[in-house]
Design a protein around this nucleic acid. Structure first.
Lengths: 232, 232
DNA sequence: AATAAGTTAATGAACATACATTAACTTATT
DNA sequence: AATAAGTTAATGTATGTTCATTAACTTATT
């Protein structure tokens, strides 16, 4: 009994010292009512769990990761996840959704910007998305490539729609570039897939500790793509 | 009992009528001694099993594929696999080894060929690798990408060595192209990653049933890459 | 201010199920 | 007769999930 309680306290303290968690929790502050504050804390904890789950799913693969594995990494018991998520698939879904949404939002500002030239937009797209990917430590956007098949039909559909949003932004840039004569005319659909591949798969081979910096690689990547679609 | 036996016979007949199997088995012919012939037939059946297993691993993922699933596709019982393979991991290993070896051997001739121009070599590499990937039905996920983490340490090492061979061939082509002045000088390491990304991820978005043929997409892909590294 | 009612986050135990693998046995082939 | 190919049945283990319960908090009522 006593040891169990002691352990709970230890655990609670541990949670609050987890860097990410404590910072966000602090940011919530005392501005809101206790009710809302609690809800926010819950969602923070939920995101923290998702973060951990994402790492594990990416490292070990979805099916190779058991609820027990998840629980171990999160310092709790498997059952506790069911206070936050409907089931295991739901965890994967939320992980993938977050990753994909962040990818989209890292380039969303380009969508309704008709002023900037397509070339500059392309540079911005590549650099901001690649930069974002390089900044995430463990989990990877490629999880949304590999994990999508384990999702339920509805969830899969939602993710695909999200991804289409990303694609449509990219395609629009290419279309404008071709119309303006800045890019050589090619199949905008295929080419946007090629470009996305280059960016997204960087998370497999790029390392922050490597020979080249994010900026240097980003520049090489942009030059490659830019020449690839017949610019310059 | 009787019905079970009847079913077995049906199954046996079915095996021998499976197109791939019967052709190969016929090809073995009566030229060799009975002992060797039997061994060859065994290995043919084994490869046939590997082929089926590969498709399933590819579609569903390794851990999501049960021995029962495999047995269903191969019209036999799970236990029978243990007459051919040590365990499940062994099946995965052989599948991945085959895939990787085929991928590598389709481009190996480029390695010690100093005659053909780098441009043509690059075209050949891209088209044959992409063509190979496209020929796999049920386009889904990069098995050799995601599957290797489920292999034992030794098996994984072997596969990685094979893959390194692929990389080194690609890098060599790029290096020669830069030296010859056919390609613009860039970082050969990064660029080879970019190229491999483009080719490998095609298995996610390319469909044989789509608007464009393998050849058309292959051409667009090559042009993209070729311009990308500053050719033409 | 004190107490009652309700909520959240966590737990351990129990669950049915599905899994890979094995051993013993039967049938088919040479 | 010997070996190969296949089956049946059984086994131990691990899995995802549910359930009742508890402690700590928050909100509502008096």
């Amino acid at each position: 009994m006593t040891s169990s309680r002691d352990f709970d306290n230890t655990r609670a303290v541990w949670y609050h010292f987890s860097a990410f968690y404590i910072i966000l929790k602090g940011a919530v502050g005392n501005l809101t009512g206790t009710r809302q504050r609690k809800e926010m804390q819950t969602s923070i904890k939920k995101n923290w769990l998702l973060d951990k789950a994402g790492m594990l799913f990416w490292q070990k693969g979805y099916h190779a990761t058991s609820m027990k594995d998840l629980a171990n990494v999160c310092n709790c018991k498997p059952a506790n996840f069911y206070n936050y998520f409907k089931n295991k698939e739901d965890i994967l879904y939320e992980v993938i959704k977050n990753i994909t949404e962040q990818g989209v939002s890292s380039i969303r500002h380009l969508d309704d910007d008709e002023e900037t030239s397509p070339v500059e937009q392309l540079r911005s797209l590549i650099k901001s998305h690649f930069g974002y990917l390089a900044s995430m430590k463990q989990s990877s956007i490629l999880l949304s490539d590999t994990g999508i098949k384990y999702l339920s039909r509805e969830h899969r559909k939602e993710i695909i729609e999200l991804r289409d949003l990303y694609d449509s932004i990219l395609r629009k840039i290419i279309r404008r570039g071709i119309e303006d004569g800045e890019f050589a005319p090619t199949d905008e659909q295929v080419v946007s897939n090629l470009i996305a591949s280059v960016v997204v798969r960087s998370s497999i081979w790029f390392s922050n500790k490597g020979r080249l910096s994010v900026d240097e690689v980003g520049e090489i990547m942009f030059n490659f793509v830019y020449s690839g679609i017949g610019g310059e």
